[in-house]
């Protein structure tokens, strides 16, 4: 394709999109149209940014008599402008807080606020009000809103969210989310002081996923090193949990990981996915000088490449060998050329 032709065709696409936006804008502004048509028009308009359009959209958003789907769509359509205006942010926070508003509208409000939070220069001054609203939503009857609010707060290491999550783990009658999700959310903050709870969860897990989560998060707890080793070597343990313990141990205690990874690689009775993980861990992060002197390990990895028990093992073995061949961690031959 000639470049001028490429430009011409692309420009035509842009012009078609512009026409569609103009039509959408026009149709949305026509109040005589039914809600469904105006909603479809908003999709074509994409974003409302002019003063009059935004004012029209705000009228729709604040009109409780109006169809909730249209209200939610109008809110999303002014998302860009919300991120530039404290007044609009306040309006949307009000919608989020208001338990009498339809869930759809409140969901749209939450999405719009999260999107707007990326325009930090404008949004940061409103963070206290937003956080205050999110904390109120933690006890909302709408599950989805409650979970989202809790997640957003927990990612921000919010003290109140952490407090409520810990309470829910200690007293299941106060559960806000599943135990596995609760520990995951707490795991955003290594200072959240939940390591005893994690160790308990490993011993008595409500689900495999919860156990996997707890194991993964114990990577931050030096006191759990032996526990992680035990899990890694336990062939009766779920493979996903053992893989999680491999990653955790490699982070927490690389020397111990390397020792046990080698045993796993040498053991033909081991699961292949764990062997692949072990090979990769050594290839990418191990003490290369020590590895280079370990002929027993190198021979076995070569053998696993030549006679791979699985595709994952073959790929990992190939990566290990190419990285060893280049003589350092992360050389140009870090990957396989397939």
């Amino acid at each position: 394709m000639d470049t001028p032709e490429h430009r011409r065709q692309y420009t035509e696409r842009i012009e078609r999109a512009a026409e569609e936006q103009r039509e959408g804008l026009r149709d949305f502004s026509d109040r005589s149209r039914p809600a469904e048509e105006r909603q479809s028009a908003l999709r074509r308009a994409v974003a409302l940014r002019g003063q009059d359009e935004v004012a029209e959209a705000v009228d729709v958003i604040l009109d409780r008599e109006e169809d909730p789907t249209l209200r939610a769509s109008a809110l999303r359509a002014i998302g860009i402008e919300v991120g530039k205006s404290h007044d609009l942010i306040d309006m949307v926070i009000g919608l989020l807080r208001d338990g009498d508003e339809p869930e759809m509208v409140r969901q749209a409000a939450l999405r719009t606020l999260q999107q707007s939070s990326f325009r930090a220069a404008t949004f940061n001054p409103k963070m206290p009000e937003y956080t205050d609203a999110l904390r109120t939503v933690i006890d909302d009857p709408e599950d989805s809103l409650r979970e989202q609010a809790l997640e957003i707060l927990a990612q921000g290491k919010d003290e109140y969210a952490q407090r409520r999550l810990l309470e829910s783990l200690e007293d299941p009658s106060q559960a806000l989310v599943s135990p596995g999700k609760a520990v995951q959310l707490l795991g955003n903050d290594i200072h959240a002081d939940y390591y005893p709870l994690l160790r308990d969860m490993v011993q008595d897990p409500p689900s495999t996923e919860a156990k996997q989560e707890a194991v993964r998060l114990l990577a931050a707890d030096p006191a759990s090193k032996e526990l992680l080793v035990d899990i890694l070597r336990d062939k009766n343990e779920y493979r996903e949990v053992r893989n999680a313990s491999a990653a955790a141990l490699q982070s927490l205690a690389p020397a111990e990981f390397q020792e046990h990874a080698k045993q796993i690689i040498l053991d033909d009775g081991e699961y292949n996915d764990l062997r692949a993980t072990a090979i990769d861990g050594l290839a990418l992060f191990a003490d290369q000088e020590a590895l280079s002197q370990d002929t027993e390990l190198s021979s076995r990895v070569e053998q696993l490449k030549e006679q791979p028990p699985s595709d994952e093992v073959e790929r990992s073995a190939a990566r290990y060998i190419s990285m060893r061949a280049s003589g350092e961690t992360g050389p140009a031959a870090a990957g396989t050329n397939v």
């Binding site: 893989n243 491999a246 990653a247 490699q250 292949n272 090979i279 861990g281 994952e312 790929r315």
Partner: peptide
């Protein structure tokens, strides 16, 4: 997938 470097 086991062997994906992002596992770590």
């Amino acid at each position: 997938e086991p062997g994906n470097p992002l596992e770590f």
